[in-house]
Design a protein around this nucleic acid. Structure first.
Lengths: 239, 239
DNA sequence: CGGGACGTTGACGCCCGTCAAGACATGTGG
DNA sequence: CCACATGTCTTGACGGGCGTCAACGTCCCG
C-alpha cells in the first residue's frame, strides 16, 4: 500500500513534469551536468551542507537515516525521475543519506543555479511543492506500516508495490517481479530483519503464493492472497 | 528527538511567519472565519474532499491514519500555529483525519479563498513549501523511531520532546511537563500500546528518572539519564 | 578452485502485545 | 453527601512474533 502510493505519487509527478512547458524543461536540463556513480556509493550524506541537487536518470537509490549504534532505516527507494537532495528548510543541510544500490546516472545542479531557475520560473517551484507534498503523504503511510503492520503484511505490501511499479498499466501480467535490492535493504526499508524477510518469503513459497525463480526475481502466483495479506486479513491466519 | 525536530520546525516556521510582510499576514487573517471545536471531535476526515484549510489557534489536535481493522497511527500532534488540511496534490483529498484532544479554537479558510491568496502572494506559497519540507523531515525521523527504537527509547524521546516544547529557551528548568493527551494517544503516536506506556513510565519512576505527580503532569528528575536512554545507550540495560 | 557476499534455515529468548482484574479519578443523579 | 457508573491508568500473567546468533548452502568473481 505504502509503496503503491509512492509509486502513484511519482507517476503523478512525472506526468506533471512532462506537461511542463517544454522551454522550462529545456532550461532545467540545459543547466545540469551529468554524472555516473557505481553501485554502493554515497551520493549525499545526512548533515552535509546541501551544495547540489540531483536527478536520477537510471539506476536505483536508497535514502536512509542512521542511529548512532548503526541501526538503519531506509525511508525510501528512488527510481529514475526522482530528485535527490532537495531541501527547502533554513539550515541548508541534507536530511538523509542517499546511496546507490545499482550503478546510476544522474543529472546534477548546483544549489545556486537551481535556486535561480526556481525564481525565474514559478511553475517549477509549484512543481516541487506538489512533489514534496506527495512525499509527505507517502511518509505518513509508511509510518502506519512501520508502526502497526506485521512482518507478513509488510513483505506482501512490498511485493505488490514492486509489481505495480513494474506494470503500471496492465492488470493481468506474468507477474514476474524484479527485485534489484539486497534483502538487507528490503529489511531496513520495512523495519524488520533480513532473516525475517527470508523466512516470510519462504512461507509464501510454501503456501504457493510466490515462486522464487532466478536470483533477484520473484513470481507472484496468487496475487489475490497477497492482497488479502497486505490488507491485514490473511486467511485468518496471523490475526 | 523526533518531537524535538517537530518543535524546531514549527518554531522556525513561526518565526518565518512572524517575519512575513505585515500586510500579507493581515490579508491572510482577514479572510478567515473563526471556529470553536469541543474535545474529541473530528476537524477533517481522511478521504474527504479538501474544502477548507484550518489554523490552530489554541488547543491540541492529533492527526492520524487508520487501518481497516481499527489499528491507528497518530502521525503527529499539532500545537497552536499549525495548519491543518493543507494539501497540494492533484486529487484534493485530505490525507489524514484530525481530531481535537482538547477544546480548540481555529481559523478557517475555504480552499478557493486560500488558493487566491496564495496566487496573489508568492511569499505565502514559499512559506508553505518550507513548512511542508520541515514536516517531511520530521516524518522521516519518526519512521526511524517507529521502525527501530525500543519502547523505552520512544517514551524517553516523547517526554524530552514535550519538555523541550514547553521550555523552548531555558536549559535548566523545574522540568515539570504537562501531558494533555491520554496515554492511548501517546501509544498510538509512538507505535506501542497504552499498557507499555504505563509500564515504561512506572519503570522510570522506580528508577527515579521521573516523578509522577498530579494527573497529566510528569516531573523529570534525571534528564541526563532520559537523554541517554533516548540516544539508545540506557545505562547498558536494554541493549 | 577458493574466498567472500548473500540468502536460508534452525534454535532460543526477550520484548511487547493481549487479556483481564483492580485502583483511581471524575461526573451524575438521587 | 453518597452510591454508582464510566473512563482512564496500573499491574500482573501469559504467549507469540520477531530479533539475535550461528551454521550451512549457493552464487559469483577473481
Amino acid at each position: 500500500m505504502t509503496i503503491g502510493i509512492e509509486r502513484k505519487s511519482e507517476t503523478a509527478f512525472q506526468s506533471r513534469l512532462r506537461s511542463l512547458d517544454e522551454e522550462v524543461l529545456a532550461r532545467l536540463n540545459g543547466k545540469s551536468r551529468p554524472a555516473i556513480v557505481p553501485e554502493g556509493r554515497s551520493i549525499i550524506i545526512e548533515g552535509d551542507t546541501a551544495a547540489s541537487v540531483y536527478r536520477l536518470c537510471s539506476g536505483l537509490v536508497s535514502i536512509f537515516k542512521l542511529l548512532p549504534d548503526g541501526r538503519r532505516q531506509i525511508t525510501g527507494f528512488l527510481y529514475p525521475g526522482s530528485f535527490i537532495g532537495v531541501t527547502f528548510n533554513m539550515r541548508n543541510l541534507y536530511g538523509y543519506t542517499a546511496e546507490t544500490i545499482t550503478p546510476c546516472a544522474l543529472d546534477v545542479w548546483s544549489r545556486p543555479v537551481l535556486e535561480q531557475l526556481l525564481d525565474a520560473e514559478p511553475t517549477l517551484r509549484h512543481l516541487f511543492l506538489a512533489e514534496i507534498a506527495d512525499e509527505l503523504t507517502a511518509a505518513q503511510d509508511r509510518m502506519l506500516m512501520l508502526a502497526r503492520r506485521s512482518a507478513e503484511e509488510r513483505v506482501a505490501a512490498f511485493l505488490l508495490g514492486m509489481a505495480r511499479r513494474q506494470a503500471p498499466g496492465r492488470k493481468v501480467t506474468a507477474d514476474i517481479v524484479a527485485i534489484p535490492m539486497r534483502w538487507a535493504d528490503i529489511a531496513d526499508y520495512l523495519g524488520i530483519t533480513a532473516e525475517t524477510v527470508s523466512r516470510t518469503l519462504s512461507a509464501f513459497r510454501d503456501r504457493d503464493i510466490v515462486r522464487t525463480g532466478a536470483r533477484a526475481e520473484i513470481e507472484i502466483l496468487d496475487r489475490a492472497e497477497l492482497e488479502a495479506i497486505e490488507a491485514g486479513c490473511g486467511t485468518g491466519m496471523t490475526r
